[in-house]
Design a binder for these strands. Structure first.
Lengths: 101, 101
DNA sequence: AAAACCAATCGTATTTTTACGATAAGAAAT
DNA sequence: ATTTCTTATCGTAAAAATACGATTGGTTTT
């Protein structure tokens, strides 16, 4: 963006929905979430085995999903166990639901 | 992306869902679609009045929504009437639905 | 105490996205 | 025929996203 257009006032729901959608806007992140849904939980290393991507790249995608609150990490030294954040998952679900009618 | 990683094989549904999500990943585009849902249809100019964005920017967002098939444009010279593409809308809806369970 | 393990972060390169103004293209009105 | 209206497209600039390798930090194992 060339200019600062953050003064555009969108409704809160619109912004939140866009934020979730953006996080889902990459096939790797969709695949990670599908994996988490099936497995219920998993470690970063599991994903590095599943996807032909560098560890740092996977970590980056996980961070993004964590930042929008769709997943959460629990320390299980020396690993980190990632799960879906059920609270926010439900929020996202209902936002998409009502968006599509 | 530094390297060509298009050889990563994602399932078709995963790619399609990510594509739709990406298109929804901007508040302006969410707002445009909400507007279209309410109005059922509208012209580019209407949107230019609603959003404090340049006409070319609105046009660009519309193009993106059209490219993923969420909307379609009908020539009503000298205007263009945009509507939601119901067929693809339903596909997107069901993909999100089954994704969220 | 040292080595090994796991995952985040840093630095960086490339590509894509987002926004704008200016221009072009088409039809309608004058 | 010229002007007006509407929208797409072009060119461009700035920012964000995507990917990688290398490094760092924290545990655990040896």
């Amino acid at each position: 963006m060339k200019r600062n257009l953050e003064h555009i006032k969108y409704k809160e729901d619109t912004k939140t929905l866009a934020k979730f959608a953006k996080a889902l806007g990459h096939p790797t992140r969709i695949a990670i979430l599908k994996h988490l849904e099936k497995q219920s939980c998993c470690f970063t290393g599991d994903l590095v085995d599943v996807f032909p991507l560098a560890q740092s790249t996977i970590s980056q995608h996980l961070k993004e999903l964590k930042n929008v609150g769709l997943i959460q990490g629990e320390l299980k030294p020396p690993k980190i166990k990632y799960c879906i954040n059920q609270t926010n998952w439900k929020i996202a679900k209902s936002l998409f639901q009502q968006f599509f009618d």
